[in-house]
């Protein structure tokens, strides 16, 4: 399978746009295209990479998870408080705690959506409010700043291995995991089946409820992991961190060709969608464009992406007439 097949034509176009963007910015500010600067972009975007993949898994099943940023912030606060209370706690344990906490929060969504059968958008809108509010409650309205966190806690995201930040390594491992899950497991392929054609999926013996529980749990676990990374990287935890980040994540999905109607989306496409936003955010200050442009650009790109995607999906109908059928087969003998 060539790269072209894995990415699809839309993916290649998006990749070309990202490269063109980098080149254009590089022409105005050569400093942007130095390896260290580009690596900085990837490092900055690493959490978005992971969150986008998790959100994609949810959207594949025709769902949506609006609570990811609130989950991230809540988990971040919990691990920050734990680190303050127990400065000696080993980092692997902190990471495990973050993942488990996020997973539990995700399972709350999963239980309500898969178990009770409630609409994902309402459930995750509700848990968004609840998780944000809980941050305030458990911290008593306080902020936890870097002074309150242990050195080891803060050191992890600054770690570099083989020239790459630990954030990038984590994102690489998570991305590889998602690729393996979506491409090589029956559950992963089942997500595409459930979202693409729920009735047919039932005919194939695939259980929608289990798939839903799985994706919301996954989404929660990744949000939890990113919660620790976010808080340790920026050295602060309070109730408003990553506010509105869920919309950035969904935007990156849409830009990356993930169909909100379910069943369509690829790991490279989603990563490119995230990279695009990452490049935009990092390039604006470099070319002396106000960073305030970021939101307007991502809005315009979301609209452009969804129009392009829908247009290319809206082709052909049922073919009944024999002559149309022949034409549709494109000249195979």
């Amino acid at each position: 399978m060539s790269t072209g097949d894995a990415l699809g034509r839309r993916g290649l176009v998006l990749a070309a746009i990202v490269v063109a963007l980098i080149v254009l910015v590089g022409l105005r500010a050569p400093v942007f295209v130095t390896p260290s600067s580009l690596l900085g972009v990837v490092t900055d975007t690493s959490m978005l990479f992971m969150m986008v993949l998790a959100q994609m898994a949810v959207i594949l099943t025709r769902g949506i998870d609006l609570s990811v940023a609130a989950n991230l912030a809540l988990t971040g606060m919990i691990v920050a408080l734990v680190s303050r209370a127990m400065p000696g706690i080993p980092i692997p344990l902190v990471i495990l705690l973050a993942v488990v906490t996020g997973l539990a929060l995700g399972l709350v969504n999963g239980a309500l959506i898969a178990g009770v059968g409630l609409p994902p958008i309402v459930v995750t809108l509700g848990t968004l409010s609840i998780y944000r509010g809980l941050i305030f409650v458990i911290a008593g309205g306080q902020w936890v700043t870097s002074q309150g966190m242990s050195e080891a806690f803060l050191a992890f995201p600054k770690l570099t291995v083989l020239g790459l930040s630990s954030l990038v390594w984590v994102a690489l491992v998570v991305s590889a995991g998602f690729w393996l899950f979506l491409a090589r497991t029956t559950a992963g392929r089942g997500l595409y089946a459930v979202g693409g054609n729920p009735v047919a999926a039932r005919f194939c013996g695939i259980d929608l409820t289990r798939q839903q529980l799985l994706v919301y749990a996954l989404s929660g676990a990744v949000s939890g992991l990113c919660g620790y990374l976010w808080v340790s990287r920026y050295g602060i935890a309070y109730s408003d961190i990553a506010l509105g980040f869920e919309l950035t994540v969904i935007a990156a999905c849409v830009i990356g060709g993930v169909s909100i109607g379910g069943g369509v989306g690829s790991v490279p496409g989603a990563l490119l969608g995230a990279l695009f936003l990452g490049v935009v955010v990092n390039a604006l200050p470099v070319v002396n464009v106000s960073p305030f442009w970021q939101m307007a650009i991502s809005g315009a790109v979301i609209l452009a992406a969804v129009i392009v995607n829908t247009r290319s999906e809206q082709r052909g109908g049922k073919l009944i007439l024999p002559e149309a059928r022949r034409a549709g087969r494109g000249g195979s003998p």
């Binding site: 392929r189 595409y192 089946a193 693409g196 054609n197 194939c204 069943g263």
Partner: peptide, 22 residues
């Protein structure tokens, strides 16, 4: 083989053949 085509347009031929028992 059902009257209505029971299939996944976005997936490959191989996956359509083996969905549910890969």
């Amino acid at each position: 083989i059902h009257q209505e085509t029971v299939m996944f347009d976005e997936l490959s031929v191989a996956e359509n053949v083996f969905m549910g028992h890969m």
